[in-house]
């Protein structure tokens, strides 16, 4: 059976949720091969056993220092040596850059931001803020595809993958721009925005008071998002911005509070499965997307909903 590689994202010794999703996609179209860039892979390999993984290939090296370009070197060398039919990568800023460099190095077709890939390597993308669905096929030997988080439910299994170590030559090119200092994003107690099943977001309508947003988020076990108006005002960190120049999220439930629904905001949340909007203005464009819209003041509606949800649970 043909091999499908996927790049395992990990931080602080923990395999990202997206790795399980990519494993599930990989297994559905071939033999799933996890690629782990780490010099201490053993605990990562143990975590991967919870997903559909047939094989793990580990590569050790200075990945924190040389990052994107060096990892792209590694994947390109793996492709040249093993000819997989596809390489699946998470559609993050970093993932897409790695994918781009790999495509150039290996003369491979590239699809970014896909939400599905099938056995014939036909990908599905949702473009123009979700208004159009595009199916594409890659015509080269290996397809490089980045997949949006939360596009598939990861299958939980017990697998017993074989493990192989692969020696990567990091090129001089990849050593041109070392990381000299790094401050990881501060993680609060809440789920990671792009991984969360529920996201509660606040915009200019919060007037800087995110307390009701955070309380509803905590009642729902959700991540907190923000519009650019809110991050620009300094009300919430940039890393929580949802939208074209922020993160793309695709949760089961997205709750937009005091957000008008500008096209740049929609670009980052339009594929959410269920969308709830709370806004004072009945004409706000966000209502065009909402499965459930409330015309009202978020400072009344949101705390009442929070109370109701907490009451239901206890």
């Amino acid at each position: 059976m043909s091999q499908v590689f996927f790049l395992v994202d990990h931080q602080d010794g923990k395999v990202a949720k997206s790795a399980g999703e990519l494993a599930t996609f990989a297994k559905s179209i071939g033999e799933s091969v996890a690629i782990v860039f780490s010099s201490q892979p053993s605990s990562l390999i143990d975590q991967l056993k919870n997903f559909s993984v047939d094989q793990v290939i580990t590569c050790s090296g200075e990945w924190e220092k040389f990052s994107v370009a060096a990892i792209a070197d590694g994947i390109s060398q793996l492709i040249k040596s093993k000819n997989p039919t596809a390489v699946l990568i998470t559609s993050s800023a970093r993932g897409k850059e790695i994918a781009g460099r790999v495509a150039v190095q290996t003369d491979s077709g590239l699809i970014t931001d896909a939400i599905n890939i099938d056995k014939d390597r036909i990908t599905t993308q949702s473009v123009f803020g979700g208004s159009t669905t595009v199916h594409s096929a890659v015509t080269t030997a290996t397809a490089i595809v980045t997949l949006r988080g939360n596009s598939i439910e990861a299958t939980a299994t017990n697998s017993n993958p074989t493990v192989e170590e692969f020696a990567v030559q990091i090129s001089d090119l990849a050593k041109l721009n070392p990381v000299i200092q790094s401050k990881p994003a501060i993680k609060g107690g809440r789920p990671e925005l792009t991984e969360a099943n529920v996201v509660v977001s606040g915009g200019r309508g919060t007037n800087g008071d995110f307390k009701p947003i955070e309380e509803l988020a905590d009642a729902l076990g959700a991540a907190v998002g923000a519009s650019r108006a809110a991050t620009d005002a300094g009300w919430y960190p940039h890393s929580h911005q949802v939208g074209q120049t922020g993160k793309t999220v695709s949760p089961q439930l997205y709750v937009a509070c005091g957000i008008s629904g500008a096209i740049q905001h929609r670009a980052g949340m339009q594929t959410s499965k269920t969308i709830v909007a709370i806004n004072k203005d009945p004409e706000a464009p966000i209502f065009e997307l909402a499965d459930f819209g409330v015309i009202g003041d978020l400072f009344n509606v949101v705390p009442q909903a929070t109370k109701g949800i907490i009451a239901r649970k206890s």
Partner: peptide
């Protein structure tokens, strides 16, 4: 190195519920 097979407008979303508080 990749070709678009088809591009379809997403089926119109059923109008959501909208309530006045």
């Amino acid at each position: 190195w990749s070709a678009v097979k088809d591009a379809l407008p997403r089926p119109a979303k059923a109008a959501g519920l909208k309530v006045q508080d």
